[in-house]
Amino acid sequence: MNVRLYILSALMCCALLTSAVRAEEVHSAEGIITYREKVMDVLKYQSGAIGAILKNKLPYGDDVLVHAKGLQATSRLVAPSFKLKAMKDGGGARAEIWAQWDEYVAAAKVLEEAADRLVAAAETGDTKATAQAMRAVGGSCSSCHKPFRIKHANHRH
């Protein structure tokens, strides 16, 4: 009797643990991916806003600095937002991010430094220097995306 009870208890524990782990994995993976996609979206929106001002020569020079500072702050969240490994079918993250974590962090650091230079350029109000600094920001994105992002089918380049 004791043996049967022991086996039954052990099976129930296993079932509970398995379902708990599965639930946690599904939940956390979705949450992690959603969060880091939002971090990337913020970077895109800040870059898009700066681009919209510069390319259309809008008289919103002060706003460029606001967006540059936003981009600078968000750049600090890029590496930490990938600290927890989570991937999904059709997602953009390559496994190399976690397999080559130090290289990934170094690539994210390049973005942080480019964002610092962007803020410095925006503070001067020099649109030409700001545009050049934006190009460096774009370069840091591109050089990180090449080894670490899966190219989306709908991505232009």
């Binding site: 929106y45 806003a49 190009r135 774009g138």
Partner: peptide, 28 residues
């Protein structure tokens, strides 16, 4: 037209995403 010019100058697409791979090299 300004979207295209900015893209070829900076690598940034209208939505704020960036050129990638060979196209980035061509821009840079």
């Amino acid at each position: 037209a300004s979207d295209m010019i900015w893209y070829l100058q900076s690598g940034f697409e209208p939505d704020g995403d960036t050129a990638q791979g060979v196209m980035w090299e061509v821009i840079e």
